[in-house]
Amino acid sequence: MLSSIGEIGLNHYLILSAALFCIGMFGVLMRKNALVILMSIELMLNAVNISFVAFSRYQNNLDGFVMVFFVMAVAAAEAAVGLALAVAIFKRFREINIRFFEHLKG
């Protein structure tokens, strides 16, 4: 279990990461505003980054850091494209609601 309060181990970081991930996931599922959904996605990515860094740190291996670096770059790219889409949607509907992405409906 969470052993002694005073000592911070790998599991603490991992649980923090899981909590952050689930919070982001909750946002993605629940919010109507596309912008907030994008922010929630950033939260999820950061949660993953935390576990990467923690693992890397506790394994004495730099590969995790490199992975974090890549994740950050991809996340930035994703944010740019997502925001561009949001701008396009806003131009069309004057509102930024996930409902307007529903044209895939069969």
């Binding site: 599922l29 629940m30 919010r31 109507k32 912008l35 907030v36 949001a86 996930i98």
Partner: peptide, 15 residues
């Protein structure tokens, strides 16, 4: 982007 859209507090923030 938020500034650009001039977003207000949402009445129904959740789906």
């Amino acid at each position: 982007v938020v500034m650009l859209f001039d977003l207000k507090k949402e009445k129904r923030a959740f789906s």
